[in-house]
Design a protein around this nucleic acid. Structure first.
Length: 1084
RNA sequence: GCCCUGGUGGUGGAAUUGGUAGACACGCAGGACUUAAAAUCCUGUUCGCCGAAAAGCGAGUGCGGGUUCAAGUCCCGCCUGGGGCACCA
């Protein structure tokens, strides 16, 4: 721990007049910073009998622009909290490091040829210098940098953990993939449904698994891995030869240069975070995060429950309903007018399946037979078949089922004709066969089915449109369907007449980014010419495409219910689609009503039912009919985990043909190789694709994204030097969760979700004893810049003062805030700016001054509104700077920076100093016994500051300091018994001045390790209170009563008061409200 | 567009649970000390009305409604600033 400074054992300032005793903040701060560093005052041990406390700042990216005053806000807050906890007797871990991989360094490398490692190191050195200036208590021996091999070795190691794991849905946890393989070998994948059910080999037996070749096996395993490789769309800019971030694409062209950007499919790695969706959502309740933050994560995960419903597609609205003999398209399984009648038959029957039917269904359902989809009691050509696989044109009948004479006869002719024409096969089994020899039956069916290829399945058979809806209760209010423009079904269903219109629309959509599409207010869309058949009413519903439906969410298709959904309603109005009202008076014809509590009308079997209840009724019915399933959906998608960049962690993956294999752990770290050029490889691949030695080894050429390193850095701080593990179990057990995590809301979903997922995965795999990384989260607001503008007359070098700018045609230009005083421009400084670019500028002044315009914007170098903390620390000292940042306002609130108020905080510190020292007389503190008033002032401060610091209300704590120092100054109190505890109280906020004065009082050890003063309530006890007395809620006077005064005493006192009497005008009051300790209100 | 969040004097903000709106600062005005300046100290400072002053009256927490003895705080509807929306980190 901290050693005493030589010569400081006794008071450095004896009680005698010494020359200049003013507050020399800079020399004091430098002295103590050096002392603390030399004595390792901030070194933290992993072994301690004190309770632990882990206080963490969000990982900074060391940008080349350096720190501006916005950055340290959270760091100061966490620093104060850490120091406070240390005084309260905790072993506090408070580390700092750098998220050092990232795009800006790579961009800088491309433009200037400087290796990212070099520029990153420079930036870090600069960052560090600036941080040190402010006097933070980080244990720098624990610093980590994500770009260093001894760090990213473990990033790669964790990646391999994820790659070599799958999510066991039954146990709801990650497990080694070896266990999955073992399960496949013994029982196939029946117990482990594939996360992506549309994968071509969705189910297989143990025997089938054994028969698969290595490539197939690996392809199947890839479908399960928590880190997996697939294909994804990126913003590809041919002209720049690179992949662009969403925010680098504006209006379909690149932000830099305005080149066209198109979607391109590339190999991408993903994290299967969707498997964790439920746990990520449920475990939020364990966390002390703001409700807003939990809400944001919940919305991002976007869990919703509803149903997937299959609609049969038709390309003409009313086939066969008018002209007899009209030819049915090949994918028709029924016709709208007959459908309803058939459904009615089916309904009754499906509820009461025979034992044989149930047994067979158990074998056929859920695409169990090589992925073939079966339906039961499904209408085919005006006839209800027991089971049908439409894709394979196979009908399976079980004798003893429902076949009335009348029905047989009425549909027989049509059925025979249709079946012949369309090449259907029919298999018939007896009840006994099914019940007693189910395996034989199964293999017969399999024989006929063969192995389907996706091509075959699409070649003929029906087209089914599957939609996802959270409101199946509104099924009778569906007036149109909307399909995502990129949905694969679009090409299949678009009619010849609509082909041109659809293609034009697709061109339009392709030029737009996902964000633009979601933000679009104007309504766009295009009719495909096809119709979906409502399975209950048989109604033909037009199918549209529109950009507001995204392919990635749900099934990429929705059923639109205009009377209940605002967006659907606007769409219907815009395209003149008639609106069906299913909720009677609850729909006013003008705007949609999304209620769930209306009573349904126009809804067949749902009529009279409350919507909320109808949801389940409809889903049950859909499931019974085999045309829909209950479905939980998540808005969250798997996290894209690869970048086509150089400056990131290489993947420890080798490719053998099309199969990815993990490098053995012994080959970690896989070092990032040197490159000559940072420009992208061929076909949008990363720069690593340009290195022959790399590609010769068949190594993965993508690199990991920025969030790879930052998803686990909080673990590394616990044991940063460990080269046998990412951190020892002993260290992670001891430090456990981060107790307080401070950072901005901009990380609300990305970083905070990924870190939670990684922690959970490591926990599942037995590497950690906790499954949530950050127990408490404090969100700091953003410090904005207050920009200043000058107005240049267009095409000239003449600048017009803000008040006169409307008289001219002008362009607003950012002026550097550092040479604007308030709004007045320092013209001479401006002329020298930017190498004299404006040296010859002329100015049109108002009242002899040039006034600037102002606007609040993000603080950024490009807007010339940054303020450098170094400058302020230099002028006022680190302690003043720290306290001023806290004094600005609540930590979680965003506010524009204004340097002006800093003087007030500086004056306060000087005033504090003067309680100890007089400029002329030297030391003035004494050992006199304090009075009760002085104790009261101190203990009021102890109470307030302790409470406020604990709840992160630093601005009010600073003001409590000011109040206390003002009171002590007024009392002329220079008593050591008061000042010494005040010094300790001040330590977290202004450590340098506190340490200096602590030693000045003759203390030997460091104030950093002093004990936080104990609040004693006895000094604050009052016997009476001055009550505000209101008449009808308006304060008119005040009266003093004993604190334990009862209602009668108070009423008597109040009524005797002349102000009250004046307002009463002789009448008795209606009521007198007396809230003990608060107020009195007289109601007249 | 969707999600989150904020709006209180000239300025930053305070009011922790519905109970004296404007604490603490900045700025401004006036004064003391000084040859002067800096520093420091004192007084005033929500707005309007009345008044020499004291006192008093009215309005007032983005806008419009509502609940309550009492609303910055709770409810409904609007306006508006900021953050996020999956490759910035």
């Amino acid at each position: 721990m901290t050693q005493p400074v030589p010569g400081f054992a006794q008071s450095r300032y004896p009680n005698k007049k010494i020359g200049n005793m003013e507050y020399q903040f800079r020399s004091i701060e430098k002295k103590w910073q050096k002392h603390w560093q030399d004595n390792h005052a901030y070194r933290v041990s992993n072994i301690s009998d004190k309770p632990k406390c882990y206080v963490l700042d969000m990982f900074p990216y060391p940008s080349g622009a350096g720190l501006h005053v916005g950055h340290p806000l959270g760091y100061i807050a966490s620093d104060i909290y850490s120091r406070f906890k240390r005084l309260k007797g905790f072993n506090v871990l408070h580390p700092m490091g750098y998220d050092a991989f990232g795009l800006p360094a790579e961009q800088y490398a491309i433009e200037h040829g400087v290796h990212p490692a070099v520029s990153t190191k420079q930036n870090i050195d600069n960052f560090r210098k600036q941080l040190d200036n402010i006097g933070f208590c980080y244990d720098w021996e624990r610093e980590v940098r994500t770009c260093e091999p001894n760090y990213y070795k473990w990033t790669q190691w964790i990646f391999l953990q994820l790659f070599n794991s799958f999510y066991n849905r039954t146990l709801q946890k990650a497990q080694p993939i070896s266990e999955l393989i073992a399960a496949f070998e013994t029982a196939g994948n029946a117990a482990y449904p594939m996360p992506d059910s549309s994968f071509h080999t969705a189910s297989f037996s143990a025997a089938e698994w054994a028969g698969f070749d290595e490539t197939t096996k690996q392809a199947i395993l890839m479908e399960y891995r928590l880190a997996y490789c697939g294909e994804g769309e990126v913003n590809w800019c041919e002209a720049l030869g690179t992949v662009l971030a969403n925010d680098e694409v504006v209006n379909g062209v690149s932000e830099r240069g305005g080149h066209p950007v198109v979607k391109k499919k590339l190999r991408q790695w993903y994290l299967r975070i969707t498997e964790y969706a439920d746990r990520l959502q449920n475990d939020l309740q364990k966390l002390e995060w703001s409700d807003a933050m939990k809400e944001m994560q919940t919305n991002w995960i976007g869990k919703s429950s509803g149903a997937e419903i299959d609609f049969v597609v038709s390309t003409s609205p009313q086939p066969l309903s008018k002209g007899e003999g009209q030819k049915e398209p090949g994918y028709f399984t029924s016709t709208p007018d007959k459908w309803k009648a058939l459904i009615d038959y089916a309904k009754a029957n499906r509820k009461n399946p025979t034992a044989a039917e149930s047994a067979l269904w158990a074998v056929l359902r859920n695409r169990q037979l090589n992925g073939w989809k079966f339906r039961r009691q499904h209408p085919v050509a005006g006839y209800i078949s027991d089971f049908v696989c439409l894709d394979a044109k196979l009908i399976v009948e079980v004798d003893g089922g429902y076949h009335s004479e009348a029905e047989q006869q009425s549909f027989d002719a049509l059925r025979t004709e249709w079946l012949n024409e369309h090449g259907y096969t029919m298999l018939r089994f007896s009840n006994e066969e099914v019940l007693e020899q189910i395996d034989t039956v199964k293999s017969r069916i399999e024989e006929v089915l063969g192995t389907p290829s996706p091509l075959e399945r699409e070649k003929e058979g029906e087209v089914v449109l599957r939609v996802y809806t959270t409101r199946p209760d509104t099924i009778f209010g569906v007036d149109f369907m909307v399909v995502a423009p990129e949905h694969e079904v679009v090409a299949k269903i678009t009619t010849a007449e609509q082909k041109t219109a659809v293609e034009q629309y697709l061109d339009y959509v392709n030029s737009r980014s996902e964000r633009e599409r979601m933000a679009e207010k104007k309504i766009t869309g295009c009719f495909t010419g096809a119709y979906a058949i409502n399975p209950f009413s048989g109604r033909a519903i037009p199918i549209w495409i529109s950009e507001y439906v995204l392919a990635g969410y749900g099934t990429g298709a929705i059923m639109a219910v205009p009377c209940g959904d605002e967006r659907d309603h606007k769409f219907a109005q815009h395209f003149n689609i008639p609106i069906t009202n299913i909720i009677g008076d609850a729909y006013n014809g003008q705007e949609a009503n999304p209620t769930k509590d209306a009573v349904l009308e126009n809804s067949d079997f749902l009529n009279g039912m409350v919507m909320r209840k109808a949801i389940d009724v409809v889903i049950d019915k859909l499931e019974a009919l085999g045309i829909g399933t209950r479905k939980t959906n998540y808005r969250m998608r798997d996290a894209a985990f690869s970048r086509q960049r150089y400056w990131g962690e290489p993947f420890p993956i080798v490719w053998v043909g099309n199969t990815a294999y993990a490098l053995p752990e012994s080959e970690l770290p896989l070092l990032l190789p040197e490159v000559d050029s940072y420009s992208p490889g061929p076909e949008g691949q990363g720069p690593l694709a340009n290195i022959p030695e790399w590609t010769d080894r068949q190594l993965e050429t993508n690199t990991m994204p920025g969030y790879a390193g930052s998803s686990w850095y909080f673990l590394r701080y616990m044991d940063p030097g460990n080269d046998a593990a990412f951190a020892s179990r002993q260290a992670t057990d001891y430090w456990n969760q981060v107790d307080v995590y401070i950072g901005g809301t901009e990380h609300a979903v990305g970083h905070l979700l990924y870190s939670r997922m990684w922690t959970k995965a490591l926990y599942d795999l037995g590497h950690l004893s906790f499954d949530e990384p950050f127990k408490k989260l404090v969100n700091q607001g953003m410090i904005q810049g207050s920009s200043r503008f000058v107005y240049r007359k267009r095409g000239t070098n003449v600048f017009v003062s803000a008040g006169l700018k409307d008289q001219y045609e002008t362009d607003a230009l950012h002026a550097d805030v550092n040479f604007v005083d308030g709004y007045e421009l320092d013209i001479e400084a401006f002329k020298k700016w930017r190498n004299g670019e404006y040296a010859n500028a002329e100015f049109i002044l108002e009242d002899g001054k040039y006034l600037c315009g102002a606007e609040v914007e993000k603080m950024s170098k490009s807007k010339f509104n940054t303020v450098n903390p170094d400058m302020l620390v230099d002028k006022y000292g680190a302690d003043t700077f720290r306290m001023y940042e806290m004094f600005l306002g609540p930590i979680e609130q965003s506010k524009p920076w204004d340097t002006k108020g800093i003087e007030g905080v500086h004056r306060f510190l000087k005033k504090f100093w003067r309680l100890f020292f007089d400029e002329q007389k030297g030391s003035v503190w004494n050992n006199d016994a304090p009075t009760d008033v002085e104790y009261k002032s101190l203990h009021k401060a102890i109470k307030k500051i302790e409470e406020d610091t604990e709840r992160f209300s630093f601005n009010t704590a600073v003001s409590a300091f000011m109040i206390c120092v003002n009171e002590l100054s007024d009392l002329k109190c220079n008593k050591r018994a008061i000042l010494e505890p005040l010094c300790i109280l001040m330590t977290p906020y202004a450590p340098h001045i506190a340490e200096e004065l602590w030693h000045a009082l003759g203390n030997a050890g460091s104030v950093l390790d002093a004990a936080f003063p104990v609040f004693e309530p006895k000094y604050l006890v009052e016997s009476s209170k001055e009550y505000p007395v209101s008449i009808n809620g308006k304060v008119r006077t005040s009266l003093s009563f004993a604190l334990d005064a009862d209602q009668a005493t108070v009423e008597a006192g109040v009524l005797a008061n002349e102000v009250v009497q004046k307002w009463l005008e002789g009448k008795p009051p209606k009521k007198i409200i007396y809230v003990k300790g608060k107020m009195i209100n007289v109601v007249i």
